[in-house]
Nucleic acid binder design. Sequence first.
DNA 1: CACCTGACAGAAG
DNA 2: TCTTCTGCCAGGT
Length: 120
Amino acid sequence: VGTRRTLRSDEARELARVRIRATVDAIPPGRVASYGQVAREAGLPGRARLVGRVLADLDAGSALPWHRVVDAAGRIPPRPGGSAARQRRLLAAEGVAFDARGRVRLARHAWRSEEGDEGP
DNA sequence: CACCTGACAGAAG
DNA sequence: TCTTCTGCCAGGT
C-alpha cells in the first residue's frame, strides 16, 4: 500500500459514514429521526454534524431516505437548494403530520429503533 | 498551517 | 419560545 499514513483515519471516517448511512436507511417510512439520534444509533454520540455532512454529500439519485432526518425539534430548516420543500412533500406522502408551525409531530412519528414501527 | 463554515444539539438566561 | 454559547469535527480557503 503506497500511502498508509492516513489510511487508518480514512478508514475510520469511511466506517463512520457507512454506519450513518445504514442507520438512516433503517428508519421506517412514516417515522423520523433527528441528526443526533442517528449519530447515537450509529455509535457516534455527539456527532450530529457529521450526520449532516454525510447527508449533504449524498448524490441526487441516492436511495437513502434522507427526508426522514429532521432536527431535534422536528423542524426542517430552510437549506440552500430548496430541499426543505421536497422533504416536506416526501414526508407528507408517507403520512407524516406537521403541526401549525411546520414541525413534524414527533409524538406520533419519532422513530424508536428498539420498537418496531408502532407509534403511540 | 491558521481560520472559517456548516443538512446539529443541549444548556442557560 | 427565542437567543447565545459551547461542543464536535470534516472540508474548504
